[in-house]
């Protein structure tokens, strides 16, 4: 396959970036998207050009590092996958592919396609945990009976890998799907009840302080989420938030 790649290049966080065009020949349809990027970088380095910086780690859809916005969609045109699980067979010979970093004010570009998603970490630190005494007397989690439906929903919410595709895909750069998944995974379980009020208040407060946009229920986040996190979680978070405010 011969491809024309239009890629966002930005020297550093403060530099002004822009789209650069590169041509790549002999791309195998069996390559993963990141392998194609590796081949491009080999070519660039051979030409004495700075390789394209991009995030990647596990390359098996678990870590959520690979944050590329490909042809107008987070993680590209396929569904329920991360960029590392996207294969070149999804594209055609002669295609032009636009590759950009995830865009949001709270996700500043560090270099090229690498963005700083530590805003998600700060939201998580604000309340995305349960406080457990680990002095040796920890209660066995399985000793608590949990309804199967609630456990399933909690696990579904916990599948969120915090990749940021929801923010990148949302026309408003809203982080509601991510935050709601983190709120829901605890709100549905008895272990999460003790800190439920503070959790949702603190996490939403931190989300707002980071400067994410307002959710307008377009549903783009749910469609583009590599882990299929449901909008149901956002409705649950709204309920949790309203009820937490009433409790004070």
């Amino acid at each position: 396959m011969k491809l024309t790649l239009k890629i966002w290049r930005q020297e550093n966080a403060t530099a002004k970036g822009g789209m650069q065009t590169y041509n790549l020949d002999d791309v195998s349809p069996d390559m993963s998207f990141l392998e194609m990027m590796d081949v491009l970088n080999e070519q660039l380095m051979a030409q004495g050009i700075d390789p394209v910086a991009f995030d990647h780690d596990c390359r098996e859809g678990i870590c959520g590092s690979c944050s590329m916005f490909i042809n107008g969609e987070a993680h590209g045109p396929d569904r329920l996958i991360t960029t590392c699980q996207l294969h070149m067979r999804k594209f055609n010979d002669g295609d032009t592919i636009h590759i950009e970093p995830f865009r949001a004010k709270p996700f500043p570009v560090i270099k090229d396609l690498v963005v700083d998603r530590s805003s998600f970490d700060r939201i998580q630190h604000a309340g995305g945990f349960v406080s457990v005494n680990t002095s040796g007397n920890t209660q066995d989690a399985n000793a608590l009976p949990i309804e199967k439906a609630a456990a399933d929903k909690a696990f579904d919410a916990a599948a969120c890998i915090g990749c940021g595709a929801c923010v990148a895909s949302c026309k408003n750069a809203s982080a509601m799907l991510f935050v709601s998944a983190k709120v829901s995974q605890y709100a549905l379980l008895p272990q999460g009840q003790v800190e439920a009020t503070d959790r949702v208040l603190n996490m939403v407060k931190q989300m707002d302080e980071e400067g994410f946009g307002n959710c307008t229920n377009t549903g783009a986040c749910e469609v583009e989420c590599p882990k299929g996190i449901s909008l149901e979680n956002i409705a649950r978070m709204n309920r949790e938030y309203l009820s937490a405010n009433l409790k004070g």
């Binding site: 966002w8 042809n71 950009e100 865009r103 949001a104 408003n172 750069a173 994410f212 946009g213």
Partner: peptide, 9 residues
């Protein structure tokens, strides 16, 4: 404002 720089595509 929350988006910042617009996407090319």
């Amino acid at each position: 404002k929350a988006r910042g720089i617009k996407y090319a595509v």
